[in-house]
Amino acid sequence: MVDWDLAVRIGSRIAGEGPSVPRDEARRVVAELRAGADRSTGLVRDYTGLVAQDHTAPVLVVDRAGWVQANADAFATLLAPIVDKLTEKKPPTGLTAAVGSRITGAEVGSVLGFLASKVLGQFDPFSPPDGRLLLIAPNIVHVEQELEVDPHDFRLWVCLHEETHRVQFTAVPWMRQHMFDQISAFADTMEPAGFLEDGLTRIVEGIKNVRSGGGQTGSILDVVGTPEQKQLLDGLTGVMSLLEGHADVVMDGVGPTVIPSVDRIRARFNERRKGVGVLDKLLRRLLGLDAKMAQYRDGAKFVRGVVDKAGMSGFNVVWESPEHLPTRAEIGDPDAWMARVLRT
């Protein structure tokens, strides 16, 4: 259903190469990012109390094309349950399959190409056996130059955030399977009959809504989801808000002890997260990146709210089982989560 090779070619072409850096300088950046990720493991462990084995997931310092390829691989794995479900119910054949796979490949490639110039780092939990940490060197260099911040401080700051994600998944072994199970449950709700026609209609309406500035939201996920799908997405949103907010809290908690210019970096980076330009802002809303920014903000507020009242040990109860994960509503109401899980 998706021509992944075409998606990678288009995504890599759209992404471009990023800033031009002399070869020797590029080698030093790569080495520094690897060292920063390695150093961050102990810093995250000491701050959070989460114990993950060293080097359980490889650290890959990649360029934009490498990130596109890695995410195409991850999406192929992640979407496999949905693709299997749809093809089992109504397998595409002949010209429909050939043309359809290229259309979706071009669409996915366009999205990956846009994102490949924005992302600084990412933990891919679905890469066997234990996931992998990706650091996108040209984007990190580009942003540190754009923000005019100390490059060494900024690189360690990024590593702290992304290494926290690695620790989350490797210290909490059930997390990976839980998220995959949620995706599989989402796949069970997919019906091929009228899916494309109905979905396209709602996407068009969503684009009109975004461009007119109306409504509470405008991402593609929000406009194509049925009530059952939205309920599942709410659960995933709660988990992602927790993971992203926790990583932000850790980087801000550890940062002042090892990164002298962390306050300057945080202030300038927060301003950058707002996006620039009309097209950039439109694409961010359509792709749900505005919601992603809200996940950082709301998740961090939840984590701080619990830690302030229950301490880090009380907060860490969240990692004990899937039943302890906050719902989307509880992300905005830490007291409700503590009442349910901690009985406070």
Rank of each mutant, 00 (worst) to 15 (best):
W337N: 02
M1N: 03
E228H: 09
A80Y: 07
D5W: 09
E144K: 15
F180H: 13
S241N: 12
D63H: 06
L232E: 06
S313N: 12
F123E: 07
A329F: 09
S12Q: 02
D298I: 04
A57E: 08
S127F: 05
V258F: 04
G113L: 06
L283E: 07
L279G: 03
T327H: 01
R297F: 03
I207H: 05
P256E: 10
G109F: 00
R273A: 07
V61K: 11
Q231E: 12
A294L: 11
V167S: 00
V258C: 06
G94V: 04
R176E: 05
R28L: 11
G218W: 05
E320Y: 09
V68G: 04
V51N: 12
D46S: 15
L78Q: 10
G311R: 12
H142P: 00
A72L: 10
Y296W: 04
D263L: 14
S40D: 04
G42S: 09
D252F: 10
V249G: 00
F114W: 13
L43M: 13
A7W: 08
F154G: 06
P81E: 10
Q216K: 13
D198M: 12
G245M: 02
W337D: 01
Q182Y: 01
K118W: 02
V2T: 13
F126T: 11
R28V: 06
F154H: 04
R272D: 05
F180V: 13
S127H: 11
A52G: 14
Q216A: 14
R13L: 13
V254K: 01
A291C: 03
K281Q: 15
L33W: 11
L95W: 06
L196Q: 09
F195Y: 13
T189N: 01
T93I: 11
R340W: 05
